[in-house]
């Protein structure tokens, strides 16, 4: 469990957990192994008021470990069928981290399809809840493989909203939306570049700003105090080992 892939995954998870810092008593939704572990880690460390589900229909009092559960029993504290997730997200009481297939400079993500929407080259899931999530509450993203094919000049379909002024019609409320953090296998980014564009906040150990730029199809801004992504602490590593007893995170990055 100390191989290179697990180490990188742990680093990404600890960095992604920072997305929820200071969020208070809201629903933390992490869709996918790394986002879910990141939300769980945030809850168990710096953000103890967060709420999470079992990824199905109940709220739990502690994060549910990933994979087969053995004797583990869910600690249920509430009911959260899919319809109530909509109630919560429309009220803005949620911060979701999802895994887009494509993401661009102004934060538009695509999980719908590759190619022409009229007749796609590859049909993916469909927009799911991304349009409603992104316009109603804070969203963050994890991209396991940072390449010019995932960090694209323009997404083939904008499954959600982003920071292009031209796409916001008069009278549409923008003040509920925030795209907070993007974590990839190479770097951590936010949208505090010029004109709310994507900006490198930190690069992972052994990765340079130039390397991140070379794997990105658009020009990234760079934070003036860009630094190295901090390594996870022993406390964080112990929590992750307990939350992922089967080591699923080892194959979740890269």
């Amino acid at each position: 469990m100390t191989d290179k892939s697990t180490t990188l995954a742990d680093l990404c998870i600890a960095a992604a957990a920072e997305a929820w810092r200071g969020d208070g008593e809201i629903l933390a939704s992490g869709i996918g192994v790394v986002p879910r572990l990141a939300a769980s880690l945030a809850w168990q460390t710096h953000s103890p008021d967060l709420m999470m589900t079992d990824s199905e229909s109940v709220l739990v009092s502690e994060p549910v470990p990933i994979g087969p559960r053995g004797d583990y029993r869910l600690k249920v504290e509430g009911w959260m069928p899919f319809r109530r997730v909509f109630d919560i997200l429309w009220a803005g009481r949620r911060h979701a981290m999802t895994m887009p297939t494509q993401i661009d400079r102004l934060g538009y993500i695509n999980i719908s399809l590759v190619g022409d929407p009229a007749r796609p080259k590859v049909q993916l899931l469909g927009a799911r809840g991304i349009p409603g999530n992104t316009i109603n509450h804070t969203c963050s993203f994890f991209v396991p493989s940072h390449t010019p094919k995932s960090f694209v000049d323009r997404v083939d379909m904008a499954s959600g909203v982003g920071y292009d002024d031209a796409r916001w019609a008069d009278g549409v409320r923008r003040d509920f939306m925030e795209l907070r953090l993007v974590v990839s296998n190479l770097a951590v980014m936010d949208f505090n570049g010029p004109g709310k564009t994507m900006r490198i906040v930190s690069t992972h150990p052994g990765v340079s700003v130039d390397q991140v730029q070379a794997q990105t199809a658009f020009e990234l801004a760079v934070a003036p105090d860009v630094r190295e992504t901090p390594a996870p602490t022993p406390e964080q590593l112990a929590i992750l080992a307990a939350l992922d007893p089967h080591g699923q995170r080892a194959t979740a990055v890269g």
Partner: peptide, 26 residues
Amino acid sequence: RAGLACDIERLNPSLKTVRSPYADGE
């Protein structure tokens, strides 16, 4: 609000918007 300002609106031209008749005008 869901569907505004993204390609759901663009790819479904049959979808229309409305303006709140109240002071907010959303």
